[in-house]
């Protein structure tokens, strides 16, 4: 398998400094905003961080478990719909919404994961795609919540009854906190015994079985955790846009999440953050040049796949003196 697992080999935590630098940079950005930068930048970076949370959750199973989930956007959609549906019925508290979002996404992940993980390789890709489509069509059929057109949410979620999240800066820091917590939790998870078993299964499931592990249980657990985190990112995106629609669950969105992970460097956790940043900035930049930006982005993506192994993180570690394991 060529270029699939850039971190294969002895585990060494080579990227905490990079992660710290990026998070510190993100934390200071609103301060620059106070000095006169554009609030548009703040909005864009908030969006980047939300997609980064989703992409990191995907990296947990894609990069560390070699499970190519092509329906991951469904979880983001579930999180978003949890906000929209609860808000319609007068439940606007963020914690309640996030709790429901996490529970439902974890439940959906457990159900679909249990079926999907019976298959391998390309079957897994296609069955996760099919489950993603199921969620998509379910959302389309929810006529009471906007159906195909989606649903506008009147205002952002409340925290203990207060409408703090209406403030762009506070919302920015909330998203940043979720991002940092996701990074730390996932890092702890992959460094623990659980992560070692997961990586072992990625490399050779038969051997893992031979030495007494049951790969299925570890893979399913990772899948559920990943789904739950991705659901949380959906709560954030619904709050940022004040809008939910089935488009969040479209399979193209799942494809974009995979692109972010691979573009940044899979199996690195910080890579998906860089990938999300790069993807959304390139999109923003190219879309400013021409409405046909996808005609540039598509071939660009093909070139990256054909020629850039290890994604952007791989390139960064090579440039900064390559502390290779």
């Amino acid at each position: 398998m060529s270029g699939a697992h850039p971190t294969a080999g002895p585990l060494r935590d080579r990227r905490p400094r990079l992660a710290g630098l990026i998070l510190a940079g993100l934390a200071t950005l609103p301060l620059l905003g106070a000095l006169g930068a554009d609030s548009y930048v703040l909005l864009l970076v908030t969006r980047v961080m939300i997609f980064a949370v989703a992409a990191i959750s995907l990296d947990l199973i894609l990069g560390y478990g070699a499970m190519v989930s092509f329906g991951h956007a469904a979880f983001m959609g579930i999180g978003a719909y949890a906000v929209g549906i609860l808000a319609t019925h007068g439940i606007e508290d963020l914690l309640a919404q996030a709790g429901v979002a996490i529970l439902v996404s974890a439940g959906f992940a457990a159900l679909t994961g249990a079926v999907s993980l019976r298959t391998k390789g390309v079957h897994f890709i296609m069955i996760t795609l099919a489950f993603g489509q199921m969620a998509f069509f379910l959302a389309v059929s929810l006529a009471a919540y906007g159906g195909d057109d989606g649903l506008t949410i009147a205002r952002r979620s409340t925290v203990l009854g207060a409408e703090w999240l209406g403030n762009a800066t506070i919302f920015y820091y909330l998203v940043l906190a979720v991002l940092a917590a996701t990074l730390l939790a996932c890092r702890a998870l992959v460094a623990a015994r659980f992560g070692r078993v997961l990586r072992g299964t990625r490399e050779n499931p038969v051997r893992m079985q031979a030495i007494g592990f049951e790969p299925f249980r570890y893979q399913l657990t990772a899948y559920v955790i990943s789904g739950a985190i991705c659901g949380l990112s959906g709560v954030l995106i619904a709050n940022q846009t004040n809008f939910i629609s089935p488009a969040y669950m479209a399979w193209q969105r799942s494809g974009e999440l995979i692109v972010m992970v691979v573009l940044g460097g899979m199996g690195t956790l910080i890579g998906p953050l860089i990938g999300a940043l790069a993807y959304l900035l390139i999109e923003e930049w190219l879309a400013g040049i021409t409405e046909h930006w996808k005609m540039i982005f598509g071939p660009l993506l093909i070139l990256v796949v054909l020629h850039a192994r290890g994604g952007l993180v791989g390139a960064i570690t090579r440039i900064t003196g390559g502390r290779h394991g």
Partner: peptide
């Protein structure tokens, strides 16, 4: 290449041709 690379590159083709 492995399936993931194939998925990504052909996804790029979809983006290009649809546009």
């Amino acid at each position: 290449r492995d399936h993931l690379d194939q998925v990504l590159a052909t996804f790029g083709i979809i983006l290009f041709l649809n546009q």
